[in-house]
Design a binder for these strands. Structure first.
Length: 120
RNA sequence: UCAGAUAGUCGGAUGGCUGCCUUUGUCCAUUUUGGGCGGGGGAGGAAAGUCCGGGCUCCACGGAAACAUGGGGCCGUGUAACACCCGGCGGGGGUGACCCCAGGGAAAGUGCCACAGAAAGCAGACCGCCGGCGCGCUUUGCUCGUCGGCAAGGGUGAAAGGGUGCGGUAAGAGCGCACCGCGCCGCCGGCAACGGUGGCGGCAAGGCAAACCCCACCAGGAGCAAGACCAAGUAGGGGUGGCGAGGGCCUAAGUGCAGGCUCAGGUCAGGUUUCCGAGGCUGCCACUCGGGUCGGUCGCGCGAGGCGUUCGGUGACGGACGUCCCAGAUGAAUGGCCAUCCCCUGCCUCGGCAGGGACAGAACCCGGCUUACAGACUAUCUGACGCC
């Protein structure tokens, strides 16, 4: 899994991508732009704005998103898409199993799970 | 035992699986990028607020003086420095341990002193006190009027032109005296702030300087988005060289142009002005170097460093010796999940169950200050009660 870090990527996702809002987080998805070769690993960006809380809360939210992306998107999501995870305030109090289930549901509703693991 | 005071320390622990940043060893591949297997390190006491003081970087900077602006202001230490620390002094609070204080000058000037009150700054007379005179009456006196003396008592206020007591007086008043306070001069102690004491003065001189102000002292500007380099990029910029120059007068009928003579101007020295001294620049052309930029690299962590021992000092702190290397991200690492233990809260069948773990996240680095903080521990001291 590689990280999206450029501002232009975040702007592109928010303008052109599809968006789905869940209880604890939001997910934005858009295809990898044409100039970039698709690797076997998906690319993921993380956002935890000041709406989540102070610096301590934002750090914790971003780390939990990072860990979620490692365990869900990196393994099960299609690598020809770019993903941005946006934290909501409720992410701080949810259990990790709950969050994993929610992210899998979101990917499923957008039909972005890998075909090779379609039995899930 | 209970209630407190001060100083200080800590601020969850251990393990498993799996990640991230950084550094290093080795092997492999290699044009570069890299890959495998190991090792080391990886948030705080406040990392916070960004309020002071410094280091560092760039810019500016020849010298001197005056003014302005800002700043803090008991005294003596400590320190790179401070508005910080330590030790004292003075004032205030507490039974006490101890705590608090923006603490120079109000007998230089200007200003202000709300409300209340008669009067608030060359004081004042509302209720009052005392005396003389007049009228009346219930006549050792009282009421009213008037002319004077006065400010003790009452009342207002943050503050009413020293306080308490005695004398004095018609009533009073520093009018006189004693003590206290105040001021001046001396002596003693102290480096000093200041304290003690003697004499004199005689109540003049109210408060506010976080009102202007006065006094002595201190102070260039901007900040790591500083700044440097690389890549890309081509003009508005920089450097070097050459030519030209501003004012006045003359030649010219005259504006311009051109020529000649003469003078030395304008601007720039970063808060302002003045003086002295030495210089630079302006427009065009040629050559040359090369921006802005959230691209990358450096700056970037061996430091006013941590720990220990010892010596000096009441102490802050300083010296010597030994020892250690201890975060460096940049859409920003320092984690995610689980288990056991610890602590807190709730419930009951008293041993379990359930929930929870303060404030808070480095961004160039240090020294302070301020603010937030569940709780735990240590030492010394104070007061009360009890026992020996």
């Amino acid at each position: 899994m590689s990280r999206l870090k450029k501002r232009e990527d975040f702007v592109r996702l928010s303008k052109t991508g599809r968006r789905i809002a869940m209880r604890h987080l939001s997910l934005q998805v858009a295809p990898v732009p044409p100039g970039i070769t698709v690797s076997s690993e998906p690319r993921v960006g993380l956002t935890a704005s000041r709406r989540v809380g102070g610096a301590v809360q934002r750090n914790r939210a971003r780390r939990r998103l990072y860990s979620l992306a490692e365990q869900v998107i990196n393994l099960y999501a299609r690598p020809d898409q770019d993903y941005v995870l946006i934290a909501r305030r409720e992410i701080l109090t949810a259990s990790f199993g709950e969050l994993k289930l929610e992210l899998e549901q979101a990917l499923n509703r957008l039909n972005l799970l890998r075909r090779t693991s379609g039995n899930r």
